[in-house]
């Protein structure tokens, strides 16, 4: 396996795993959203993300060519082999935490997909072009919710501020990428993590400023890293639930 291929597989797992775990967290909202309209909307975003995850993982499985398919990658990998962003594995908390996470992720996701639409890898460009339409809408919704909660009532503002404080440290992974990603960008395959990080920050700054939410200082690296499989403890529990059936019945056909 050449090293570009290796970089690419890791990159596809970063994209696929992040979308899948974010989608899984949204599934947890089922029946518990603050309004019925919001049930529909949260599930819709989740549906888009799990669909995207399947596309990325399909491609990753093909490149891995070790007999595993997308489902094997999703349901039979341990947390150390998962490559998702730390941000998306964080518990949902209240609606402010959920929306803060969603917004910070969407703003990153949009920039990555924009970059990937120009990928010389046409498979990637195709998946990204479709996903970009979906994520443009996700970001529209989540940024509006950040504004509503940040600029709504005293209570909602207090909760949004607390939510940002709680999850901000994980944004270090959104503001910068790995060397492998820089190499992929140079090869014309991946999105440039430096550009993504700058555009992400610009978007976050603008949305926060619109409702006078202070922008915290840049987060710094702190031992954990989703890209290398160094996760928070939350991921293992999430996977235990998500992977239960294929793990408990390894020979089953669903």
């Amino acid at each position: 396996m050449n090293s570009t291929q290796d970089d690419l597989i890791h990159y596809l797992l970063l994209l696929g795993d992040s979308a899948l775990i974010q989608g899984q967290r949204l599934c947890e909202w089922c029946g518990k959203a603050p309004a019925i309209e919001e049930e529909l909307a949260l599930m819709n975003v989740g549906l888009d993300l799990v669909g995207q995850a399947r596309n990325w993982l399909d491609y990753a499985a093909e490149l891995l060519a070790d007999g595993r398919d997308a489902d094997d990658l999703a349901f039979r990998r341990d947390e150390r082999a998962y490559r998702n962003l730390l941000l998306v594995e964080q518990p949902n908390g209240d609606f402010a935490v959920t929306m803060a996470k969603q917004f910070l992720f969407d703003a990153w996701h949009l920039q990555v997909l924009k970059g990937l639409c120009d990928s010389t890898d046409l498979r990637i460009a195709g998946i990204a072009a479709k996903a970009l339409k979906e994520v443009t809408y996700h970001l529209r919704r989540s940024s509006e919710w950040v504004q509503r909660l940040g600029g709504g009532t005293d209570e909602s503002r207090r909760r949004m501020l607390a939510a940002i404080t709680q999850v901000w440290r994980f944004t270090v992974e959104l503001a910068s990428g790995s060397e492998a990603e820089t190499r992929l960008a140079a090869a014309g395959i991946g999105a440039d993590p430096a550009q993504v990080g700058a555009a992400w920050l610009h978007q976050v700054e603008a949305t926060f400023a619109s409702v006078e939410l202070p922008l915290p200082p840049a987060a710094s690296h702190f031992y954990l890293s989703g890209r290398t499989g160094m996760h928070t403890e939350h991921l293992g529990i999430l996977l235990a639930e998500m992977q239960f059936l294929p793990r408990a019945y390894p020979d089953a056909t669903w």
Partner: peptide, 23 residues
Amino acid sequence: WVTRAPTLKRKLQLMAKIQDEAG
């Protein structure tokens, strides 16, 4: 069960169904 659907396809189907029900 939506958080424990056994395959990506089954998860997507169930999410779509739940969404319809809210609808």
